[in-house]
């Protein structure tokens, strides 16, 4: 494996708590992400996976606990702060703007401006550059057969929209990429491409947190598997240490785990 477990973790969540009224979505959850690894997060519906990664990406502010990036505490008040530090997220609900086109969506919040006075004084967008880069990225990812990068996202299929969200994270992620069920709406071929993309991103040295309900996918790409149950981490296993049915048993509470098989 390419991961480095002896190194300082890139991203760490310690004892995160998040309550929605009387519901405790995250209950003193821990999570550790090492450089160069794919960390899968699995768990039942409502276990708190999305809530946890939202805390890591600035989309929600935890009630308790701390988040460390490269060992230093960080406090995100907005998704932009996390993005500025290189944490890029594909949200489960995709977070794309339906009426905007593909290129606008890819660059939303990080638009490119024309060089020179047009950009600096007149704040003029460099639409051509954004469209070209968007086109290149979508083609490189081969996620979809889209002919027109300036078509509105609402005219795309669900899977194609997912492709847009995935492309955005691959385009901008520089430290950590988080993907919340990126293959949920995808066909067989498109899922395969996203999985290959995830491996490629990992091989480029970027660690990834992947939330998925698809056990074969998880066992294929993950270096480690974080099992989330009832708002906290029930166990962290590897595809070699446990079988799929053991993982599912831990996830549902049918099996207790006594030791953490992974170093550190």
């Amino acid at each position: 494996m390419t991961a480095h477990y002896d190194q300082q973790p890139i991203l760490q969540a310690r004892s995160i708590v998040k309550r929605y009224g009387s519901v405790t979505a995250i209950d003193h959850a821990d999570l550790t992400l090492y450089p160069g690894e794919i960390l899968a997060v699995i768990g039942d519906n409502g276990a708190g996976k999305s809530s946890l990664i939202k805390a890591l990406s600035g989309a929600l502010i935890p009630d308790e606990g701390e988040i460390l990036l490269d060992g230093k505490p960080v406090h995100f008040n907005s998704p932009m702060q996390a993005r500025e530090l290189g944490i890029e997220t594909v949200y489960q609900n995709l977070a794309v703007s339906p009426a905007l086109n593909i290129a606008d969506n890819l660059f939303l919040g990080r638009e490119l401006r024309k060089p020179g006075i047009l950009g600096s004084v007149f704040r003029m967008l460099d639409k051509r550059a954004m469209e070209e880069r968007a086109q290149a990225k979508m083609q490189e990812l081969g996620l979809m057969t889209i002919q027109n990068i300036s078509q509105a996202v609402e005219s795309l299929s669900g899977g194609q929209r997912q492709g847009v969200a995935v492309a955005r994270s691959a385009l901008f992620g520089s430290k950590v990429v988080i993907m919340d069920e990126p293959t949920a709406a995808l066909g067989v071929k498109e899922s395969r491409r996203v999985l290959n993309l995830i491996k490629e991103v990992r091989d480029r040295g970027l660690p990834i947190i992947l939330i998925s309900h698809n056990m074969p996918h998880v066992f294929e790409v993950a270096d480690r598997i974080h099992i989330h149950r009832l708002g906290k981490c029930a166990a962290t296993i590897t595809p070699d240490s446990h079988t799929m049915s053991e993982a599912v048993a831990i996830m549902t509470g049918a099996m207790e785990v006594n030791s953490d098989p992974v170093a550190a």
Partner: peptide, 23 residues
């Protein structure tokens, strides 16, 4: 032709998505 304009549209279109996109 400005980022501000894109953000105005995105905010009106789907504020939750715009927020998650960092706007």
């Amino acid at each position: 032709w400005t980022a501000w304009g894109r953000h105005v549209y995105a905010t009106g279109d789907d504020p939750a998505a715009a927020k998650l996109a960092g706007i």
